[in-house]
């Protein structure tokens, strides 16, 4: 990833009213950049480019600095994320219990790789280091739902289940 040129962010038109409200809320707070960006991510699911320009202008922070902050923290996202975030643990316990096969199966069945999102914005897939439930290894999560003792068969069930849910 380090050697690849950054992907161009899509030009998009979004409603900035919510972002403006978030900025209003924190405007006078010292060190307000982080809560504003977190608020925007909560609201939009990611941090859209137009909101970065807006935050830069209203908080009088360089857009470059905001971009630096957003790329420093793994928890910020610059592109739209799926409605359902599939996380598969690849920590030590899960790894020895077969996590690599679970990951591969997800790749194959959902058709996306690590940190990617399906074009219909239903799924985002992520490998994560440890979810803190090693006793249930291998472990997967979809949003806040937990699936322990994962098997290749269960992958199909999970995909089927969340493909039906409303967006």
């Amino acid at each position: 990833m380090s050697n690849a040129p950054a992907e161009q962010l899509p030009e998009e038109e979004i409603d900035l009213a919510a972002a403006n409200e978030i900025i209003d809320k924190y405007l006078t707070l010292p060190g307000n950049l982080m809560p504003v960006l977190q608020g925007i991510q909560d609201e939009y699911g990611y941090v859209p480019k137009p909101t970065i320009d807006l935050v830069a202008e209203r908080l009088n922070v360089y857009p470059s600095q905001i971009y630096g902050v957003l790329t420093f923290y793994a928890q910020f996202h610059l592109k739209p994320r799926g409605r359902f975030i599939i996380r598969v643990c690849v920590g030590t316990a899960c790894h020895v219990s077969g996590a690599p096969r679970i990951v591969e199966t997800f790749f194959e069945k959902v058709g996306i790789g690590h940190a990617e999102t399906t074009p219909d914005l239903r799924f985002t897939f992520e490998k994560v280091a440890c979810l803190g439930a090693c006793g249930m290894a291998p472990l997967a999560m979809v949003n806040d739902d937990t699936f322990g003792k994962m098997t290749v068969q269960k992958v199909d069930d999970i995909i089927a289940e969340y493909s039906q849910r409303p967006m």
């Binding site: 990833m1 380090s2 950054a6 962010l9 480019k49 857009p63 470059s64 630096g68 790329t71 420093f72």
Partner: peptide, 13 residues
């Protein structure tokens, strides 16, 4: 931009 070994000096976006 970014962190650790991936960090580089960059511009906005």
């Amino acid at each position: 931009i970014s962190r650790g070994i991936e960090a580089k000096m960059g511009t906005q976006f």
